[in-house]
Design a binder for these strands. Structure first.
Length: 89
DNA sequence: GTTGAGCGTT
């Protein structure tokens, strides 16, 4: 579903951070197609990292270049391009 | 009500 080329990996997030927070933050640079924060399947608590999907790879690269190393809620955001979860479609 | 390197699920 999600194109890995336009998906970015977000880490170093505060536990309180939600997907909507990521959307609001990245909407500043580019429209957000989908935001997904990985949480523990058992406890349901935030794992502290997530993935953000953008409309295009260039938007993803722009979001990375803009938000990587940027402070967010007192933490330094780690934004980088996501790895393809599936080797082929 | 806690913790801190990381590449993911209905």
């Amino acid at each position: 579903m999600a194109k890995d080329d336009s998906t970015v990996y977000i880490a170093n997030l505060p536990w309180r951070t939600t997907e909507d927070d990521l959307v609001a933050l990245f909407e500043e640079v580019a429209p957000v197609v989908d935001a997904r924060i990985i949480q523990d399947r058992r406890t349901g608590r935030s794992c502290g990292y997530g993935f953000l999907e953008l409309p295009s790879p260039e938007c993803a690269a722009r979001a990375v270049a803009t938000m990587n190393g940027r402070e967010f809620n007192g933490r330094l955001l780690v934004v980088s391009r996501a790895n393809p979860r599936a080797p082929r479609s």
